[in-house]
Design a binder for these strands. Structure first.
Lengths: 220, 220
DNA sequence: GCTCTAATTATGCAAGCGTATAAATACACA
DNA sequence: TGTGTATTTATACGCTTGCATAATTAGAGC
């Protein structure tokens, strides 16, 4: 008896919802990192995740939902990586700020893939209110964390730490970190190992007028 | 006698090649600013420029050629705007650096449209060697200009200005400018008028350990 | 083992994309 | 005025895109 109408369907295993979402987000981030946002088509993502486009739609009703989730995931990942550096830092607040800065200006945070992801999303902030909101939340969260680290470092160095000054310092230090991160991601090959982290620490020490190495004493 | 096969073709005027290219680039930049890179389709650009897609192809054989030209145009525009600020600055090098920084951290350079344009292009650096090259050239050009301004300002303040130090300062000052520019473009509504320019000047004064107001004297 | 249903595959749709090409015409020149 | 051609419009092509939908089946529960 001849086999009629070959309708062989690929065998599959079911996965839990969380795992599926995570895998789809990971596949999305890979696609964006390699080919930019435009290259992250539903088909490419599906191929990368070894599923079909229909499954993507099942978990993320519109492509924008997946893109938004991917952005939040990459921002969250960088935040966690920087926070992890705090966990293994010495107890002195200056060491902690030092470790935080160095984490943000070293691998795996300062990485061209992260830059591609970040820029792809950031480029949509002007046109997409949801992206604008996500970015604003992230920015303020990061800056608040930074301001707290700065306040503690100033106090540990015996310097005044009024909110009006720590706010301004946080804005400036955030700029130094972001700006050097950009330089490192975009032109990392022309800098020596650790050069940008050192440059960042030196600039921040100058701005705060303290040393971020407690053994050296309080203020510069 | 009835009119047969209405083939009325829109009347047109010819333009010179340079004007055409400029107009197409301008239309492209408008589209990118409003809708991100993905929104700048050939049809949308043609509509914006009041021409047809065929004409775009006549002047730019591939869409990538137009996108690349648009990127170079926006970078060049920002560079010219910053340089213009130098022309009207006082002669003292500290005034000149001060004016350069303020120009980069104020309108029209620090503008959400510029951010959208920049991010859209930057997001492709990792995936597109031509974009990577264009960016590298722009970065080194900007940094060299900044380094020269810094060197002169240091000398005017009676401070040493060896290349190893001015290079490092240029990297840091570039970061401060870029970082604050990002903050201003992405969250400009939460900062007071001129606040980021002031923050930038203060941070750079701290990093260089000089004042950028010559009447205040040489060093801090 | 059987039933049910949520998860998954496979396929298709309509719209849009960059690019290709032919025809028309503005305009420079003789 | 007539001619030639570079520029421009109009249209079409083949492919890709996000989304839609029907059919199938893994696996939980009884």
């Amino acid at each position: 008896m001849t086999e009629s109408r070959s309708t062989t369907r690929k065998s599959f295993r079911r996965e839990g919802e969380d795992k599926r979402r995570e895998d789809l987000i990971a596949a999305t981030l890979e696609c964006v990192a390699e080919r930019g946002l435009a290259g992250a088509t539903v088909r490419e993502i599906a191929l990368r995740a070894d599923v079909t486009a229909g499954l993507i739609r099942y978990y993320f009703p519109a492509k924008d939902d997946l893109i938004g989730a991917a952005y939040r995931a990459v921002m969250n990942r960088m935040t966690v990586q920087a926070s992890d550096a705090l966990k293994s830092a010495a107890d002195d607040p200056r060491d902690r700020l030092n470790a935080f800065v160095k984490a943000n200006l070293g691998q795996p945070i300062m990485d061209p893939n992260n830059l591609s992801l970040w820029a792809g999303f950031i480029g949509m902030v002007h046109a997409d209110p949801a992206m604008a909101l996500a970015h604003r939340d992230g920015y303020l969260g990061f800056r608040d964390e930074l301001e707290a680290l700065i306040r503690e470092a100033l106090l540990a160095a015996g310097k005044p730490a009024e909110p009006i000054h720590t706010r301004r310092h946080a804005i400036a230090v955030n700029a130094i970190i972001d700006g050097l991160w950009l330089e490192g991601c975009l032109a990392g090959d022309i800098f020596a190992e650790g050069e940008l982290a050192e440059t960042g620490i030196a600039a921040i020490e100058a701005v705060l007028a303290i040393s971020l190495n407690p053994e050296k004493g309080g203020a510069i």
